[in-house]
Write a protein that binds this DNA or RNA. Structure first.
Lengths: 229, 229
DNA sequence: GTCTATACGTGGATAGAC
DNA sequence: GTCTATCCACGTATAGAC
């Protein structure tokens, strides 16, 4: 990513959006009774968005299937054509998230060589991604501990992968004597916590009129101050 | 606090612990059917701890009153001698938290004048407090959005107060030309997000054998690097 | 493919015995 | 003060009509 603006990122994201839901449908096709792709993809999207909306207010556990029907516009019977039960919703949403992170986060370092540039890109793209797909990030953070053992393991692996990408980058810079020596793993964790705050406390930033670009700059600046020689 | 060690803080905390639950009982005495203070305080403590334990695993919404009975050792009827309903548990726990923060956080700056020392104390004491009262901090973070309007407002005020204390301190240091100029409110938020990570991801730090003192040092170091002239 | 109606289970709260 | 037994409301999931 040579263009650091949020708008450029947003466009890139919106292009992939529908395609990602279609992939999700195909991956789960056996457990979905509805076979017509256009209908299924549209309804799947509505269901997932409804889950986010309701969960944000009352939490996933407190969301009843009736709530979900009202919000998504489907009826009880119709809804059960898409999912086997409430539990499966979690797995479904997890799948969408894995796709998000793989496609946008772990591919963000192409064409960059300077450690500072790479670190900038890696920090920035995470914050931008959490802005465009905020409902998913928020949901994932709040509800991941209710996942089943299998899905939880998957989630933790993905979580660790993004943190490790940061730590590796920092260590690489230290080895090159571009960054000042420090505990790379610990610093990566601190950076991650600042990244997360963007989607966990977004109401706060909106109230204070802090833009996503400005926030990303501030986090990157913190890291650079720490790593400057 | 002249002694920066965690052990010193922990001792100070443990002395106040029982007393705080007693205050909580007296404050809510009208809505508690049980009148014998010794019994009531003991059971209240058990109930609150049980709520934390269960909520950590399945979330407050998914916790049934039967779960709570099993975990606390009381029966359904007995339990309802202490609380009017499930909703009231949230308010009760909120009360305990307000007491925690007021007593330990907002009183931590006595006897200090140097801005760096004050900032060190304010950052450190929050992290230490979240370590000794981790169940409360975790619960508060995860469940606060399910509070009623009244209690939610209270929680947000308290949240804002701790962040403002940080921001004020930073601005004071900038005015004194001890700190480098920067956006104090934004930096305060970033520091807060790093503080929160300690209790939100504690399993991670335990696995990596990062002690609470070391973590506090790392966060303070981040702030100092940013604020050094 | 989607709807309405309904069976079956679980949860919150209380009454009354001990 | 605490327990057991019970009431009623609500939630999930399915059967069968359209």
């Amino acid at each position: 990513m040579t263009d650091k603006s949020f708008d450029a990122f947003k466009k890139r994201y919106e292009i992939s959006r529908e395609e990602m839901t279609r992939e999700l449908f195909r991956e789960n096709a056996e457990s979905i009774r509805v076979k017509k792709e256009a209908t299924a993809v549209r309804n799947l999207q509505r269901i997932i968005e409804a889950v986010f909306t309701i969960s944000k207010v009352k939490g996933f556990q407190a969301m009843s299937m009736r709530d979900l029907c009202n919000e998504s516009g489907l009826s009880m019977g119709g809804l059960y054509g898409y999912i086997k039960g409430k539990e499966e919703l979690l797995a479904l949403i997890q799948g969408q998230g894995r796709r998000l992170v793989e496609r946008f986060l772990l591919e963000s370092l192409t064409d960059l060589t300077d450690p500072f540039e790479k670190l900038d890109a890696l920090i920035r793209v995470h914050i931008y991604l959490s802005e465009v797909a905020r409902p998913w990030f928020f949901f994932n953070f709040m509800e991941s501990r209710h996942l089943g053992k299998e899905d939880l393991t998957q989630a933790l692996i993905m979580e660790a992968a993004t943190e490790k990408a940061l730590a590796d980058l920092i260590e690489e810079g230290i080895a090159l004597k571009t960054f000042a020596p420090c505990d790379a793993a610990l610093l990566a964790g601190l950076i991650k916590s600042m990244q997360q705050d963007w989607y966990l406390k977004r109401w706060k930033f909106r109230k204070r009129k802090v833009t996503v670009e400005r926030y990303a700059d501030a986090v990157i600046e913190m890291a650079f101050f720490r790593l400057a020689l």
